[in-house]
């Protein structure tokens, strides 16, 4: 009985706090994306005429909440789309890109070219069934276009 109560408490707590954090994080992501819209990113290597180029990066490690992990466990019985993980990785990726952008802006970049994104599962322990945490790394070459100098 006690175990059931703990389980339900974790489920409800995980859902409430997890959903609250997610909404807050999305609001913050959208606000900062708007602020830094002037800094353009390119996946290609073509670049405007420039004097300088340097490496910039941003990363973030995220994990899923208890409620979503439970729902995901159920979902895996039937397969299909795992929305919970989709939003998790998407948030992480947008956050990593934002951090890379602020890194570039500290030295007055106008563009970031050759942007690469890397996603990897880190610090996972199968024996203890600990949650996978996912790291997203964004990196690229920040440049300052010549006509902006």
């Amino acid at each position: 009985m006690t175990q059931l109560i703990i389980f339900v408490a974790l489920l409800v707590g995980g859902y409430a706090i997890g959903a609250f954090n997610e909404r807050r994080h999305y609001a913050s992501i959208r606000r900062r994306e708007e602020e830094m819209r002037g800094l353009m990113l390119f996946a290609s290597r073509d670049m405007p005429e420039t004097h300088e180029g340097w490496l910039v990066m941003g990363n973030t490690v995220v994990s899923i909440d208890y409620f979503k992990r439970f729902i995901t466990g159920l979902r895996q019985l039937v397969g299909g789309q795992l929305d919970a993980y989709e939003s998790l990785v998407e948030r992480a990726r947008r956050e990593a890109i934002l951090r890379m952008k602020s890194d570039a802006l500290t030295r007055g970049a106008t563009h970031i070219v050759n942007v690469k994104l890397e996603t990897s599962r880190v610090f996972y322990d199968d024996r203890r069934r600990s949650t996978g945490s996912v790291e997203v790394l964004a990196y690229g070459t920040a440049i300052r276009a010549a006509d902006q100098v």
Partner: peptide
Amino acid sequence: KNLVGGELKGYT
């Protein structure tokens, strides 16, 4: 942090 989800700052 695994219970409530979100960023694991220590790992970052």
